[in-house]
């Protein structure tokens, strides 16, 4: 079986998706990154391998997400794409007439505006986390409940409490205040979900026209209470794709397929055996100029595979053989 692989390494979760030649989803995995993207990618490769037939032949592989360059080195990516584009490509694949794509992940959130099958505008949260998954995770932690429980209980709310949720700190103090005033927990929880949605629409969605059909994807779309809050706030249907949490990886796989088809290339994929290789990731401060860049490097058996993070390309050019002579500026 010929197939294309998409790998999406985000700050909170890592997703892999495998599509066959007709772009049907064959299998996918979803696991936590836990601050160790290399391990997560290797574990993901192992997990997905188990689900696949023996004869699978990887024809193309693309990486996406915030650790896309690192992941690209490990798997041998044919294409490295930003997550805004891959999410849009996946959404358009399943819903060709989509006009708005809401995507909320653990640490970031995005909004993509599509008209006539073309992305015409997008926005991404900058520094504020109040419109992302971590906002709810944080509150769930405080209330000592799982995010699933939070979502279930919030769904039963009849008369939500308005939580001032402009930022995580304010939301927290306001929530404590509302608890003390004796409001029902369900109503407070749903109030939090509404606060997240308002934050999202007020930050990322500011000045954008959110026309239906609206697709809601990313890990936070698991949370039915948030879906409900979006529906109520936007007063329209909000579609959650079945594989909403792996859409980035699916988009990457689709683009890998497209890329390989147009260029007729041979995949750089390093094989599933890569999951057993020991990689070593480290970083150092370059002292060659006052920029003092934090340069990251990844090596295998003492061989440097790649370096990045410098403001200039000096480290990308230094090959591993030259390493010793450059030791003094490290």
């Amino acid at each position: 079986m010929k197939a294309c692989l998409g790998v999406d390494v985000g700050s909170v979760t890592t997703k892999l998706a495998l599509l066959d030649e007709s772009d049907e989803l064959v299998s996918h995995v979803y696991l936590l990154t836990q601050g160790r993207p290399i391990d997560a990618v290797q574990q993901g490769l192992r997990d997905i391998r188990k689900q696949l037939p023996q004869d699978v032949d990887i024809n193309g592989v693309a990486t996406t997400g915030s650790a896309r360059y690192l992941a690209g080195v490990i798997v041998g990516a044919d294409l490295v794409k930003n997550e805004i584009t891959t999410h849009a490509v996946a959404a358009l694949h399943y819903y060709p007439d989509v006009q708005t794509i809401i995507e909320i992940g653990g640490q970031d959130s995005k909004l993509t505006v599509v008209r006539d099958g073309i992305v015409i505008d997008f926005a991404m949260n900058t520094v504020c986390a109040a419109g992302t998954g971590s906002f709810l995770d944080h509150q769930a932690l405080r209330l000592d409940m799982s995010i699933q429980e939070l979502s279930q209980r919030a769904l039963t709310s009849q008369t939500p409490v308005r939580i001032a949720g402009r930022c995580t700190v304010f939301a927290e103090s306001d929530m404590v205040h509302k608890q003390q005033m004796g409001y029902r927990v369900e109503d407070i929880l749903y109030g939090l979900c509404q606060a997240l949605v308002r934050n999202y629409l007020g930050n990322v969605g500011l000045g954008k026209e959110l026309e239906p059909p609206i697709i809601f994807q990313g890990g936070v779309a698991f949370n039915q209470a948030i879906v409900r809050a979006f529906r109520e706030e936007l007063d329209t249907e909000v579609i959650v794709p079945i594989h909403h949490e792996v859409m980035g990886a699916i988009g990457a796989a689709l683009m890998a397929h497209e890329e390989m088809a147009t260029n007729n290339g041979i995949s750089q994929f390093k094989g599933f055996e890569q999951s057993e290789v020991k990689y070593h990731a480290s970083s150092f401060e370059c002292k060659a100029c006052p920029n003092r860049c934090e340069v990251a490097e990844i090596s295998q058996d003492g061989q440097t595979l790649a370096r990045w993070g410098g403001r200039c390309d000096m480290w990308e050019r230094v090959s591993s053989t030259q390493l010793y002579s450059s030791e003094e500026i490290k």
């Binding site: 915030s66 805004i84 520094v127």
Partner: peptide, 29 residues
Amino acid sequence: LTLEEHTSETGVITRLEAFMDMIHRRKQK
């Protein structure tokens, strides 16, 4: 693009890449 000392380089590059992709795909289409 709004710049400040704490702007993450990755964020800026991601946006830039997505913007250029958007224009390229639009052109191709």
